[in-house]
């Protein structure tokens, strides 16, 4: 293959962290770059940062190196974007929160689920007659693992926030 063309390179997940002005339309501008240019966005989290009027946004995407470079350059061009960096997995801390509402048919199930939650350092945040809601925080892998454990109980509803990350 000619090295000048944008051919398929190895695709892998990337984490992009950015500081953006807290102005209306900023989320639309950023998601617009992804949709218009055909980049995929796996997760996005946004919230206040340490600076007044500035939000920190974490986006995860899957693609090749070249695509991620393009994403970063295109995002950097946006006037409301202050800074964009790619976070290497071993140089940052990533966290995700999941809430899972799980079916519990009897006392034994309730007991087992409580044990699992403790092992994973989760929290039981709500208890109903036939269900329990569990909050768990951690890396995406940890949450994936926990969800697998929950499946046999019967997951009624389930949500996860997407990754938020900070460089070390």
């Amino acid at each position: 293959m000619n090295e000048k063309t944008n051919g398929a390179q190895a695709r892998k997940p990337y984490i992009i962290s950015m500081l953006v002005e807290d102005k209306f339309g900023v989320l639309q501008r950023i998601s617009g770059v992804f949709s218009r240019r055909g980049f995929n966005m796996n997760t996005i989290t946004v919230g206040r940062s340490e600076q007044q009027g500035v939000s920190r946004m974490t986006i995860t995407t899957t693609g090749d190196k070249r695509m991620v470079e393009q994403i970063i350059k295109q995002l950097n061009k946006l006037v409301d974007v202050i800074k964009v960096i790619e976070l290497e997995e071993n140089e940052c801390v990533t966290r995700e929160i999941a809430l899972a509402k799980v079916h519990v048919k009897d006392y034994a199930a309730r007991n087992e689920l409580t044990n699992f939650t403790n092992i994973f350092r989760g929290k039981i945040v709500d208890v109903g007659p036939n269900s329990m809601m569990i909050e768990i925080t951690g890396t995406s892998d940890k949450i994936d693992g926990f969800i697998e454990l929950l499946k046999p109980f019967g997951i009624k509803e389930f949500v996860r926030t997407g990754i938020t990350a900070l460089s070390k």
């Binding site: 293959m1 000619n2 000048k4 063309t5 944008n6 393009q70 350059k73 295109q74 950097n76 061009k77």
Partner: peptide, 18 residues
């Protein structure tokens, strides 16, 4: 693109890094 300037070393000047 596969057959564009196959032997060229390309220097690209642009004000837009993207």
């Amino acid at each position: 693109l596969k057959h564009f300037a196959p032997e060229a070393k390309i220097i690209h000047i642009d004000i837009d890094s993207a």
